[in-house]
């Protein structure tokens, strides 16, 4: 049995794995977007650029300072998260009293500026980032070869999503965050410094994007457009999952990655559009998204 519905199994599983990997990135990025949107009510259009900055930061750390992948995995989210904190403090925080549209325009503009600066410095052809030796090679699973690094990406991203979910749903800090998402004024009137929480939450969302960037560096070439290519799909994922829903964005991220992968097998022509078709159907049937609460 090496065929299913007339499709060779290695091809099917290969695309499934690819779908899972894309799904891992969709999930991590939409998770950050969901966390930020929940508390800040800002649709962070800089997210793709911050993902790209994560990949570049990993590349710079390796090539300029000799800092390897494993340390980059820890350092990059901290560094890029800190740039997010500065951005929130200096600019985004001034827009909370205005219409959502201003936050969207500001973050979109900042994203374009960052992308432009990186294109100017590094060109658009892309820089290679080697898979760390500990994760190179492939496992023979019998029906297909599974590159170790790809397996690592899926497992690590799932672990990060799970950890984020646990923090938000099961800890004191997460309870504060959920409460502030519902009624920030009252949470502040209980003595919690909500503006600081908002700043740190933005930083954490950006750190998640940057962590995704580090994970992506050895798979995709490190280039200034890598974020904007991904982010459009990620926004569709967020809309399908339901704005601000944590679990929704994770499940939808992985789920849509797989659907996209399977579409490549069964009807390749639709693989670039299938997510958007699903988005339209979901918006027609459930405007709040699959996991969203109707306001």
């Amino acid at each position: 049995m090496d065929e299913l519905f007339g499709i060779p199994l290695p091809l099917l599983f290969g695309q499934l794995l690819l779908g899972l990997i894309n799904g891992a990135f969709y999930a991590m990025l939409s998770l950050g977007l969901a966390v930020i949107f929940g508390l800040l009510n800002v649709i962070n259009f800089t997210h793709g650029a911050q993902f790209m900055m994560g990949a570049f930061a990993a590349w710079m750390l390796l090539n300029w300072f000799g800092v390897n992948y494993w340390f980059a995995l820890i350092l990059v989210p901290i560094i890029i998260g800190a740039t997010g904190i500065v951005l929130e403090k200096l600019m985004i925080s001034r827009l909370y009293k205005l219409d959502h549209l201003y936050g969207l325009l500001l973050t979109f503009g900042i994203g374009l500026v960052i992308e432009g600066v990186f294109r100017n410095e590094f060109g658009s052809s892309g820089l290679p980032y080697r898979i760390p030796p500990e994760l190179s090679g492939a496992w023979d699973l019998g029906f297909m070869f599974m590159p170790v690094y790809r397996g690592w990406v899926v497992v690590f991203a799932a672990a990060v999503c799970l950890a984020t979910w646990l923090v938000i749903e099961k800890t004191r800090l997460g309870a504060n965050l959920r409460a502030a998402t519902e009624n920030p004024a009252l949470v502040q009137a209980f003595g919690i410094n909500v503006p600081r929480m908002v700043t740190l939450t933005y930083g954490a969302g950006v750190a998640l994007a940057a962590l995704g960037g580090v994970l992506a560096a050895p798979i995709y070439s490190v280039n200034p457009q890598m974020g904007s290519n991904l982010i459009i799909v990620v926004f569709a994922v967020v809309v399908i999952g339901g704005m601000g829903s944590i679990l929704g964005s994770v499940i939808t991220g992985f789920g849509l990655g797989i659907i996209e992968g399977l579409t490549k097998v069964f009807y390749p022509e639709a693989s670039a559009t299938v997510i958007f078709v699903i988005m339209i159907i979901v918006l027609l049937a459930r405007p709040a998204g699959l996991f969203g609460r109707t306001a």
Binding site: A185, Q188, A189, F190, G191, I192, N193, V194
Partner: peptide, 8 residues
């Protein structure tokens, strides 16, 4: 004072 300071 801000409301969180008042609460404290």
């Amino acid at each position: 004072a801000r409301s969180d300071i008042i609460a404290r």
